[in-house]
Design a protein around this nucleic acid. Structure first.
Lengths: 234, 234
DNA sequence: GCAAAAGTGTTACGAATACACCCATGA
DNA sequence: TCATGGGTGTATTCGTAACACTTTTGC
């Protein structure tokens, strides 16, 4: 080994994931109950350690899959948390990732195995270490990302209604939106396909289902059209 | 040590810095000539390894100071680069930071010691490893940051002229701006103080010097005014 | 028939853009 | 006097925001 590399510290590198989900009642976070000391029994983000033979992204994928069974989900690196004493056991640098998943698609058995639970984003329990900071950073990043790219659809089933989409964006932006302005803006982007089916579960009248039209979206991106998804204030 | 920690790999963690500077001719990057193998003699970002007893931010500070002699400069974490083979010598995760410094203030002797040189941002040499990716990420981040916060002033001396400020923003946004619109927008934010002195070096008429008024800016932030610094297209 | 959610259009305001000429001065 | 860079104002367009009533249908 080269001299310039030899005398430096090797350090544990962790990967922690903020996992977002969404249902009609709002944005949710998937947390696990830690089953070893320290902080045993307390709520925590899902995490794991980086192995020498995998990239950071691969480690994040692996960790997410371990808890949810899901592959190929939206996963973005967030920030490297590197305070010296962030983990009381041993010096650990943690690279946080956040994931957007369809709340209905993950594996129930794995949920039990890790004593995992969905929490409303605005009603989280105390979290271990610096995981609260990670969640805050993830919320910020999601706001930013959602205002530039159509990441919201990652959190929805294939078919969704306008009211649902609006509730989702209201959750992300932590604000209330005017439904007329919201619909106009979303529809004017011309990246949704309206179906003839109606969602009748939540109203007598029923709301039309829409689908995200990824091809149309990609076309627009290729053409250089700038699509913004900014919040619309009430 | 706890079982859950015991069997995991300890890994070299590096910190690499993208150092931005600015002079009248545009945005610049400070690069060093690597003086050890592999890639000896090739251009590289300034970097170093994380020690067990320092945080990531502290390591980034230390590395920056080592090259420039500067403390307390604008420094923001960018992204964790973690491909398995990014460093051919040994598995290394690198956390990239970017710094904004006043190009006149750094230490010349240290520059020589590291064979460092300023390069125009649009005319960089080949860089080692994945440093090109890091630079790209830093340019993007700087665009974003500059459109939300007055980070531009970090790159300027205390006193600067409107034409200089405009050249800076044009460099950051990689676009040309209309000077009437630019001045109006900047001045309407009401965070600059005009001095009575003129810069006469670059024109017969001379251009007034301005100063960034940090107090005014903080007041506005406290009052919740949203100050955006978006690019203005020609 | 009524409650409850879905759906729809117009106006007003402010921000962003486009655009061209005069000013000051050193050489 | 002229070349060079510095400085200024207005009209237009477009996106955003504010705002209230009608529709559908299960109960």
């Amino acid at each position: 080994m080269l001299d310039q590399y030899k005398d430096h510290d090797r350090i544990l590198v962790a990967v922690d994931s903020i996992i977002f989900g969404f249902d009609r009642s709002g944005l949710k976070l998937l947390l696990i109950k830690r089953d070893f000391e320290p902080e045993k029994g307390n709520w925590s983000l899902m995490g794991g350690f980086l192995n020498k033979d995998e990239s950071l992204d691969e480690a994040a994928d692996r960790v997410l899959q371990k808890l949810t069974g899901l592959k190929n989900v939206y996963l973005e690196q967030l920030y490297g948390f590197g305070e010296v004493d962030r983990d009381p056991v041993e010096r650990t640098v943690s690279i946080a990732y956040y994931a957007l998943i369809n709340i209905r698609q993950h594996d129930k058995e794995l949920m039990d195995k890790y004593s995992a639970r969905w929490f409303p984003i605005d009603d989280l329990p105390d979290l271990i270490f610096d995981h609260k900071d990670m969640v805050e950073a993830a919320k910020e990043r999601l706001k930013y990302r959602a205002s530039h790219e159509p990441v919201g659809f990652e959190l929805l089933p294939e078919k969704f209604t306008m009211p649902e989409l609006q509730i989702l964006y209201e959750g992300i932006y932590e604000t209330q939106l005017d439904k007329r302005n919201f619909r106009r803006r979303i529809l004017s982007m011309d990246i949704l396909t309206k179906t003839n089916e109606k969602q009748k579960k939540y109203s007598k009248k029923g709301a039309y289902f829409y689908k995200f039209n990824e091809d149309k979206y990609e076309d627009k991106v290729d053409k250089g059209e700038s699509l913004t998804f900014k919040p619309i204030n009430l």
